[in-house]
Design a protein around this nucleic acid. Structure first.
Length: 208
DNA sequence: ATGACGATTTACT
DNA sequence: GTAAATCGTCATA
C-alpha cells in the first residue's frame, strides 16, 4: 500500500541485452494485498509455480502471462511468506521511445486482431505504455524476468526519481481495473495514478 | 486428460 | 458500446 503510493514518480528502467536503455516514469499502480485479497493470485494462500515468487523476498519482479497474449509486471513487496505485490499499470516513457514504438508495433507475440494487417504501425506516444500489457511489450518484459531483482545492477530496475516529489494533491485513488470477480474487494480504492497524466490507462486517462 | 478462465488490448458497429 | 484474439495455468477428474 505505502509501497504502491511511493512507486508513483519513480523510474522503471529496462536495459536490453544489446545495452539499449528503455525507461519511463511510473504514473499508475495497483496494490494486491495477498492472502485476504480476493483479486490477488495469492488469495487464500494459493501457492503455485506461477505465483511462487510472490512468496519470496521483496524487491523482485513478478511477471506473468495472461489472456494468451499479454504480460503483466509486479513489484513484490512483502516479507518472505507474505505475498504482497504492486502491479505497474502505466508509464510515462522517457528513454528509448523509438525502440518502444518498434517493440509495440512488432508482429511477433503482438496484440490482438488487426495486428497482422499491414500498415497499422503508428501509435500515439501516450498509448505506448498506458496499460500493464502495453508497457511490458514496450519494455520487452517477459517471463524470463520473473523473479529478477529490481535493485542495483540489473536488466530491470527501479530508480528513485530525481525530479519533484509527487504530492498528495496530484494523486488520484480509485478501485482497481479488471477484477469484477473479487467480491467485496472489487470496490476497494487500491489503484493510484497521477491525476490528469495522459499516459494513465483508460479512455479518461486519470481525469475524473 | 480436459475444460474454463483470465490483474488485456484492439478493432469494429 | 461489443466482440475477437489466443494460450498458459489451475482445478477437477
Amino acid at each position: 500500500m505505502l509501497v504502491a503510493r511511493d512507486l508513483l514518480g519513480k523510474r522503471l528502467v529496462r536495459v536490453l541485452d544489446d545495452g539499449t536503455r528503455l525507461a519511463g516514469i511510473i504514473v499508475e499502480v495497483e496494490a494486491y494485498r495477498g492472502v485476504p485479497d480476493a483479486a490477488s493470485h495469492a488469495f487464500g494462500g494459493r501457492r503455485t509455480p506461477r505465483n511462487e515468487v510472490m512468496y519470496g523476498p521483496a524487491g523482485v519482479a513478478y511477471v506473468y502471462f495472461t489472456y494468451g497474449m499479454h504480460h503483466c509486471m509486479n513489484v513484490v513487496c512483502g516479507r518472505v511468506g507474505d505475498p504482497l505485490a504492486v502491479l505497474i499499470r502505466a508509464l510515462e516513457p522517457t528513454e528509448g521511445l523509438g525502440k518502444m514504438r518498434e517493440l509495440r508495433s512488432a508482429g511477433a507475440g503482438g496484440p490482438g486482431p488487426g495486428s497482422r494487417r499491414p500498415g497499422t504501425g503508428h501509435r500515439a506516444d501516450t498509448k505506448l505504455c498506458s496499460g500493464p500489457g502495453k508497457l511490458c511489450q514496450a519494455l520487452a518484459i517477459g517471463r524470463s524476468l520473473n523473479g529478477a531483482s529490481l535493485l542495483g545492477d540489473s536488466p530491470l530496475l527501479i530508480e528513485s526519481s530525481r525530479g519533484r516529489p509527487i504530492v498528495d494533491e496530484l494523486i488520484l485513488t480509485t478501485p482497481r481495473i479488471g477484477i469484477g470477480y473479487a467480491g467485496d474487494w472489487t470496490a476497494r480504492p487500491l489503484r493510484w495514478c497521477i491525476r490528469g497524466n495522459p499516459h494513465v490507462s483508460g479512455p479518461r486517462a486519470g481525469r475524473v
